[in-house]
C-alpha cells in the first residue's frame, strides 16, 4: 500500500514525517508552486517554528498538516498515539473566532464535536478560558472584546480539546507589539506546562527564537526548507533573560542574514 521507501515507517520519536511534499495551486492559465520537495521531521513533544517571509508557503505546509489541504506530491505521515484525543487542533491567524457564539460557546464547539457532554464541555471550556485569563468574559460576544482577547479565545479553543499536535498559523501576527510579547510569554508558560507537540508558523525571528526548540527556515517561491536551526536555550525559558542574552543576538543575526539572502534574488 505505502508508496514510501522502506525507511518510511515512522521512526521512534517522530510525530510528523514530511517527505518530498510539493503543492501546486492553479492560478489563471498557469500555476503557482507553493511548496517544492519539502522534507522535514517534527519530533515528539517539540516546539517547531516554521519561519519565513510572507508567501513562502509556510501556511500552506501547516494547512497540509492540518488536513485542510492535500499535497500535490509526496506524503505527510502523522502518528496518532491516543485515539481518545484529537490528533490536531489549529489556531488560525485571525477572524476565526465565531462572532455569533459567546466566548464560552466558541470553546465548547470543538469539544462537542469530540462527543463530550455539554456540562463537561462547559467545565473544560471555563477551565481553559481561565488559563488564558479570560475568566469573567465567558458570556461576552467576541466582537465586544479586544483583538488580543479574541486571539486568546482561539488559543483556548484549540488547547481545550487537548490535541496531540497544536498547529498555529501566525497566531500573534495581528496583535500590536506589546500584546504580542505578553501572549508569547503566556504561550511559553502554557507549553512548558503541557508539552504538546507544536508547529508554529511565524515571520518573526525573535518569536521563533523565543518559543522554538528548532526553527525550520523556509525560502520563498517555491517554498523549501532552507535550513533547520537548533535553538540552544534551556527550558523553562524566561523571555526577558533570553532576549538579553548574547546568544540571542548572534542567532538572530545569523538567521536574518540567511533570510535576507533568500529575499534578495541578486
Amino acid at each position: 500500500m505505502s508508496p514510501l521507501p522502506a525507511d518510511g515507517a515512522a521512526e521512534a520519536g517522530v510525530k510528523i514525517a514530511v517527505r518530498k511534499v510539493g503543492k501546486v495551486f492553479p492560478a489563471g492559465t498557469g500555476s503557482v508552486q507553493a511548496l517544492a520537495d519539502i522534507s522535514l521531521e517534527v519530533r515528539d513533544g517539540e516546539f517547531l517554528c516554521l519561519l519565513g517571509p510572507s508567501g513562502c508557503g509556510k501556511t500552506t505546509l501547516l494547512r497540509v498538516m492540518a488536513q485542510l489541504e492535500r499535497p500535490s506530491s509526496g506524503v505527510i505521515e502523522m502518528r496518532h498515539d491516543d485515539p481518545s484525543r484529537p490528533l490536531s487542533a489549529v489556531v488560525f491567524q485571525d477572524y476565526s473566532v465565531f462572532p455569533w457564539k459567546t466566548i464560552r460557546d466558541n470553546v465548547i464547539f470543538p469539544l462537542l464535536q469530540t462527543g463530550m457532554r455539554k456540562a463537561e464541555a462547559r467545565r473544560v471550556a471555563d477551565h481553559w478560558l481561565a488559563q488564558l485569563d479570560l475568566g469573567g468574559f465567558e458570556r461576552a460576544y467576541p466582537d465586544t472584546v479586544s483583538g488580543g482577547m479574541k486571539q486568546r479565545v482561539a488559543i483556548a479553543r484549540a488547547l481545550a480539546v487537548q490535541p496531540e499536535l497544536l498547529l498555529m498559523d501566525e497566531p500573534l501576527a495581528a496583535l500590536d507589539a506589546q500584546l504580542r510579547l505578553l501572549l508569547q510569554e503566556k504561550l511559553l508558560e502554557l507549553w512548558q506546562a503541557h508539552q504538546n507537540t507544536v508547529v508554529f508558523v511565524t515571520h518573526s525571528i525573535d518569536e521563533a527564537l523565543l518559543l522554538g526548540d528548532r526553527i525550520a527556515v523556509m525560502s520563498a517561491r517555491p517554498g523549501r526548507i532552507a535550513t533547520v536551526i537548533d535553538v540552544p536555550f534551556a527550558r523553562p525559558r524566561h523571555p526577558d533573560e533570553i532576549r538579553a542574552s548574547p546568544d540571542f543576538a548572534a542567532l538572530r543575526d545569523e538567521i536574518w542574514h540567511r533570510l535576507r539572502r533568500e529575499l534578495q534574488p541578486a
Binding site: 490536531s88 488560525f92 470543538p110
Partner: peptide
C-alpha cells in the same frame, strides 16, 4: 475560515 475551523474540529 469558519469552515476551516469546522473541518479541523471534525464537525
Amino acid at each position: 475560515r469558519y469552515g476551516d475551523v469546522g473541518r479541523s474540529s471534525g464537525a
